[in-house]
Simulated scan of single mutants.
Amino acid sequence: MTSWRDVESAVPEFAARVRTLFDAHRHKTIATVRADGAPRISGIESAFDDGELTFGSMPAARKGADLRRDPRFALHSATVDPAEGQEAQWPGEAKIAGRAVVSGEITEGPGGDLFRADITEVVHTHLDPGATLLVVEWWTPGQGLQRRERE
């Protein structure tokens, strides 16, 4: 089981950049697997809470049913377009993939299931300082931090 705390311990600067992107906006997008194997995209809120990445699902929501049946997920930060002429200031986008672990019930609001993430991959996609290359950095528990640049 790999928690957010583990990512922060392994690659603190990278984790801080990813967390900043996730914390910048309230709403994110999660991909789950439907019963027929097709992907499902849903809006979701998430939180970094005491070293864990957590998110919830309202009662009877399809994404919660998806995660209870097949815990694989991919979570995507909100994405903003780079300002024309200021592409080098674009913060990029972040993704976290893994398996959702049911960790209790949500007791506030409408209720539902609370999940914590068993993280298998963290990605930050951004531009190089000259805004001439796309930079993809990713971390996995087994391979550590890796980086690719593309024109």
Rank of each mutant, 00 (worst) to 15 (best):
T29W: 13
L145H: 10
D36K: 03
H126T: 15
K28W: 12
F22M: 01
E13G: 00
G37V: 07
L53G: 01
T79K: 10
V18Q: 05
I41F: 09
T125G: 14
A15F: 05
T125R: 14
H124R: 08
L21Q: 01
V135M: 05
E149Q: 11
R72T: 11
A60L: 15
G112Y: 09
L127P: 01
A88Q: 11
P59D: 10
T20G: 00
G64D: 04
F55N: 03
A83T: 11
E87Q: 13
M1K: 04
A94F: 01
L134N: 10
D36F: 07
T79S: 10
G112T: 09
T79M: 12
G64T: 06
R99T: 12
I41A: 04
A65P: 03
H124K: 10
W138K: 09
R99M: 07
P110E: 03
R147K: 11
G111M: 08
I119Y: 02
E8A: 09
L114K: 13
E45P: 04
P39V: 14
V122Y: 03
S77C: 08
R150V: 08
L75S: 01
A117L: 03
P71G: 15
I30H: 02
H124D: 05
R69G: 03
G98H: 06
P129F: 15
G104F: 12
A65T: 10
K28T: 04
F22C: 00
A97K: 05
I96Q: 00
A24T: 02
S57C: 12
R72G: 07
V80Y: 09
E8C: 02
G92F: 01
G92Y: 03
G64N: 06
E84V: 15
D23H: 00
I106H: 01
I41V: 07
R72D: 08
R150D: 13
D23E: 15
V123N: 01
T2C: 08
P71H: 11
F48G: 03
S46E: 07
S9T: 12
G43C: 06
A31V: 11
I41H: 05
A131Y: 14
A35E: 13
T107G: 11
P129V: 12
I119G: 03
A60N: 06
P141K: 09
E87G: 13
T32F: 04
R147G: 05
T79Q: 10
H76R: 02
R5W: 14
F48Q: 02
V123P: 00
G51Q: 04
V80H: 08
H76P: 00
G111W: 14
E87L: 15
G130R: 06
V11G: 00
K28S: 12
L114M: 14
E93A: 09
A31Q: 04
R150M: 12
G85I: 14
T132E: 14
P82C: 06
